[in-house]
Amino acid sequence: MTSLMPPAERIWWNVPIGREEIVWIGLALVWCLILFFMMPYWHIYGKQNLSNEAYQTTPAKFGEKVQAGIDQYTVREEVGIPVVHPPAGSDVYMLGRLWQWWPILELEKDKTYRLHLSSMDWQHGFSLQPVNINLQVLPGYEMVLSITPDQAGEYAVVCNEYCGIGHHTMLGKIYVKE
């Protein structure tokens, strides 16, 4: 019952530690350091890192930027949603609102874009499927990240932050062309 009783020694700090525990602590500590240094390592050598670039904004201000992109680069419409094909390597804008990702983007394979994301109202979750890249989208903040689609195809943007009763209908689309 001694875990329910005081330590057997008054100065328990000086009681020597068993070999097994020392070995285990050593192994675990090395592993913990590897766990830690993998993150900076990946920042330097890995290709999937989240940028720290972001701005304070307002729904109105961000909405204007999205609209400017739509005005300039819309190539067609799909179920009433504009499909925007911006120049390769440019800034592209997408907004989340109840319950839509707006507009649809058409990107080119292996080109790098600066994707700007923000919300018009509540919090949303940008979940690119089936690639499975997931980002938090907040009202009042514009997140900017560079993305390089490396496979052609049709991708969905699922909202994976609960945003009310129509949450499950909130889908967006990104096309990647060869």
Binding site: E78, V79, G80, I81, Q100, I104, G125, S127, Q129, P130, N132, A156, V158, C159, N160, E161, Y162, G166, H167, H168, T169, M170, L171, G172, K173
Partner: peptide, 24 residues
């Protein structure tokens, strides 16, 4: 989750959405 299924989500079929997507 590894296949991308969202948490806190009522409908994997996205019934009523304008666009569509099917999970694996």
């Amino acid at each position: 989750g590894t296949l991308g299924v969202a948490r806190r989500h009522w409908d994997m079929d996205f019934t009523g959405a304008l666009l569509s997507f099917e999970y694996a």
